[in-house]
Nucleic acid binder design. Structure first.
Lengths: 96, 96
DNA sequence: TGCTTATATTATATCATCCTAATATGGATA
DNA sequence: TATCCATATTAGGATGATATAATATAAGCA
């Protein structure tokens, strides 16, 4: 059974999605958020990375619809919005 | 149950792996090779992409252990070596 | 209002990736 | 060996991604 050809647009979407994941800091962010939502400050401390840098990486993930966020007062909590990243993370984790 | 922290090295490996996949032409190559192995010329024609460009993209995928190749005379056949890319491709395919 | 904390944005320099064009390698065959 | 076909490599400029530093926004509180 021959698979249907995938459109160029779809491939570009997928590439953008994967590119957003393809960074050590962003993967670390995913791994933390899989355990539960976190605010920017906590992420910054957990990852030992500057706040602006974490914020930029969160922006990348948010802009691709991978993460969502919710402001609560002056604190912004990020969480995983696209469950496919969890599946992909699991595949990466189950190492040979 | 708390997941064990993933090492920085591991995260960098994963990022490299995902970065190798994160390109429309390389995803197209994967989609073709999922259907069966192919030589460079066929890939170049199927993707309507110049031979040197296809060769470069194949080199990227090969260098990350994603593809393997086998020379048969003057023809080189590429095939999927790391089955994880098939799983990831499936996750991308089963679109909402 | 002024101050502090939390987060986001912008600018910039550096480094990586991309495609194209040109060239090189390597096997087959006349 | 000369030539052809298949593939790989290299060099180039263009574009994109990155981290840092500096600055901006925005909420809470004295």
């Amino acid at each position: 059974m021959q698979a249907e050809a995938v459109s160029e647009e779809r491939l570009e979407e997928w590439a953008e999605f994967l590119k957003a994941l393809a960074h050590p800091i962003r993967l670390r962010i995913i791994s933390v958020l899989i355990e539960g939502k976190q605010c920017v400050k906590n992420l910054s401390e957990l990852l030992q990375t500057s706040q602006p840098n974490v914020s930029q990486h969160l922006g990348v993930l948010r802009s691709k619809g991978i993460l969502g966020c919710k402001r609560d007062g002056s604190i912004v909590c990020y969480y995983i919005k696209n469950e496919r990243v969890v599946e992909i993370y699991k595949i990466l984790s189950k190492e040979a």
